[in-house]
Design a protein around this nucleic acid. Structure first.
Lengths: 178, 178
DNA sequence: ATGTGCATGTAACTGGTTACATGATTCG
DNA sequence: CGAATCATGTAACCAGTTACATGCACAT
């Protein structure tokens, strides 16, 4: 399984009931960070969640506009979301997938969030190591494009590590250890 | 059209003839940066490129192993690659898509590369601006997950801008302006 | 008049993945 | 003996997009 829309949407609904349209609007402007679902995937998804009993719907007839269908998560939905969220961070997780997981941070008990950040930290570090080795292996006789791509990846993983570090500090310092 | 495997593979073959397997190996360890094609997409793709006359194949019968099929790009292939590469950078280009484009830098006449980096710079800057606004709009009453995601995005776009800036410098300083 | 926002949805398509099959060879 | 590497490929499946349809209200 990858980072499905499915659980992401479920996570959003866990924070507050929303309509399909609300979800799209909420995610607007975040297209760079996460894959905003198109209506063609979102509405069928909501329906199937409904059929599975993971969400309920309340139809609010618009007075002079189309009726809004507000979806709320059910206990069953929360349960399956929890199960999802408890899995370890995907080893090959893309940036977007990770951001989507971050978004779901509210569903996590505190220490679990820290845990996930640490996992990501380890993965990025590993990845960075791999890049360094590739660069070392290729040496100077590397095509321009390849060099650019590798250095770019290096710069971004560095930045990500810095951010993770500082965020972990922020999360940990306020709480006394133990 | 998005950043198809199609043109990426074509770009790799433009740099040197390779077999399908070679391509997979070459891309190994870069899975974080680009979407490495699975055999299920790669081999059919190579075949269709062949049928379209964009590549030619030379079968090297392995002495005691499966024969290797070395694909080389044809003039027609180069032409269609060029046409692809001359298009502007996708406005909503994901990180991976951009890295793939970087990889194809060899196919670009020098100034065009600079041009692409500049375009990316502008896009990232715009994106960053959007994030700042979202943060400002939401104010303090923002869910934890949302805050994390936004700050993460901010940190990464900053890093990307820094890298782009320094890379542009590197590319430009050696050449006298004009 | 023309378009944009609200709000839902469907059908056809695409660009992939997963899992498998083949078959020899070398490594531990 | 079992596993991994080399090297090709196929078939079934899947998540998602694109483009469209509907229809009213409000702004330009």
């Amino acid at each position: 399984m990858k980072m499905n829309l499915r659980y992401f949407v479920l996570g959003l609904l866990a924070q507050q009931p929303m309509s399909g349209y609300d979800i799209q609007r909420f995610l607007k402007g975040l297209a760079w960070l996460i894959n905003r679902p198109s209506s063609g995937s979102l509405y069928p998804l909501l329906r199937s969640l409904l059929e599975e009993g993971q969400v309920t719907v309340e139809v609010i007839p618009g007075l002079d506009r189309p009726p809004r269908k507000i979806y709320s998560i059910t206990p069953a939905g929360r349960e399956s979301l929890q199960a999802w969220v408890d899995r370890p961070v995907e080893a090959d997780g893309s940036l977007k997938a990770f951001v989507m997981q971050l978004f779901l941070a509210e569903c996590l008990p505190g220490p679990r969030l820290v845990d996930q950040l640490r996992q990501r930290q380890a993965q990025v570090a590993t990845h960075r190591e791999g890049l360094l080795q590739t660069i070392a292996a290729a040496g100077a006789q590397m095509a321009l494009g390849q060099r650019l791509a590798l250095e770019y990846g290096l710069a971004l993983s560095d930045a990500e590590l810095v951010w993770l570090e500082s965020e972990l500090d922020r999360l940990l310092i306020p709480l006394p250890p133990g």
